[in-house]
Amino acid sequence: MGVGPSTKETSLHHFRDPLVDIVGSDSGIDLMGVLVFGSPEGNEEKIRCSRTAAVVAECCRPDGVIVETDGWGNLDVDYVNCVNEIGERGIPVAGLNWSGTAGTFVVDSPYLDNVVDFNKNPEGIESNIVGENNYTADDVRECVKRLKIAMLKKGMNK
């Protein structure tokens, strides 16, 4: 299990990525950068790499983090661990992930509430239709909204 045809992001998707576009042009956000990490096969490596991504985030002192992946199934292990490690460090976190009905999280964390499910298939399945289950500008706006609320809440609790 990994990335299905309907969720996979093509090279063209990365070239005109709506996530970088929308977050980068939001005048209320200072976009620090895009941190990319690979999802390996082995469980131990998955935990190490996704935890290191959270460590890099902590060292950057962000006000908030958005975590995204086009993979599901075993990629949830690293994804959820990354979100969880960021949440445990007290950093507001939101995300984008494909779940539908077929790809719901295989692992859990208390920090997944702000993860937007970008499923587009009417039955919520991996349809094998290239591009169908990709996130769009609307999904990104919803994710940014959730992150902004989370950052606001943290500011009010100080």
Partner: peptide, 25 residues
């Protein structure tokens, strides 16, 4: 497109997890 610093605004980091298993992944 400009890489910019927006002093005083919320600092946000994007993290993207990408497949790295092997052939066609």
């Amino acid at each position: 497109y400009h890489d910019v610093i927006r002093p005083g605004q919320k600092k946000v980091l994007i993290i993207k997890e990408m497949i790295a298993h092997g052939a066609m992944l």
